[in-house]
Each structure stands twice: as structure tokens, then as C-alpha cells.
């Protein structure tokens, strides 16, 4: 069972309270962008076996979207942070590095 701390209301939410929202930190490409960028934004996914950054919504709680850093191979959770961030914050990156020395942020 997956448990994530909502960074807004502070509730320790169990997964039935949450809605998953897919890969985080996607850079949006819209009209006018080239085909490769648009395709990658729309469809190509990292889908890593290991460290993954994701969007989640505290659907049956405060209703807010937030982001989580998780390992898809072990279900370990490294931390959660507000959605208004363009890249993973330094403290989350440090926590991941401490647990996964070989990991690099791509």
C-alpha cells in the first residue's frame, strides 16, 4: 500500500485517497514546436525501472496536485513536494542520492 504525505495539508494519505497523474516535470510543447518535441511531450515517457517523479492529486483530501519522488522497482518513497516546481528540489535530490548512489538526474 502506497502512502504519500500531502505537502499542502500535511495529511499522510493512503493511496485510495489519492489519484495518480503520470510523469512529472514534462516540458510542454504546443503549436509551432517541431514534430519531435511535440511527439516526445505528448507520448514518449521515461517509464524508468527505478527513481521516478510523478504527479499526484490529493483527491479525497484537500484536492491539490503535488509531486512525488518514488522508486518503481521497490515502491520506496523518497519524498513529496509542491507542484509549482520546474525540477526536483535539492533536498529531494539529496535524499535520493543518499539511497541510490548510482542514480543521476536526467
Amino acid at each position: 500500500m502506497l502512502i504519500l504525505d500531502c505537502p499542502y495539508c500535511g495529511v499522510r494519505a493512503e493511496e485510495t485517497e489519492l489519484t495518480p497523474g503520470g510523469e512529472a516535470h514534462l516540458k510542454r510543447f504546443g503549436p509551432g514546436s517541431d514534430d519531435d518535441d511535440f511527439e516526445a511531450y505528448m507520448f514518449a515517457r521515461k517509464n524508468p525501472k527505478g527513481v521516478h517523479f510523478e504527479r499526484w492529486r490529493h483527491a479525497y483530501g484537500c484536492g491539490k496536485w503535488f509531486l512525488a519522488a518514488r522508486c518503481t522497482a521497490t515502491l520506496e518513497v523518497f519524498g513529496t513536494y509542491p507542484a509549482q516546481t520546474a525540477e526536483p528540489p535539492a533536498d529531494i535530490v539529496d535524499k535520493i542520492r543518499a539511497r541510490r548512489p548510482d542514480w543521476t538526474l536526467t
Binding site: L2, P48, T72, A73
Partner: peptide
């Protein structure tokens, strides 16, 4: 299940 996962087990709910 709704989220990326490689563990070959799912959520109870």
C-alpha cells in the same frame, strides 16, 4: 493499477 510499477504486485483496493 494507476501508477508506474515494476514490482509484480498490485494494490489491495
Amino acid at each position: 493499477d494507476g501508477f508506474n510499477n515494476y514490482t509484480q504486485r498490485g494494490s489491495f483496493h
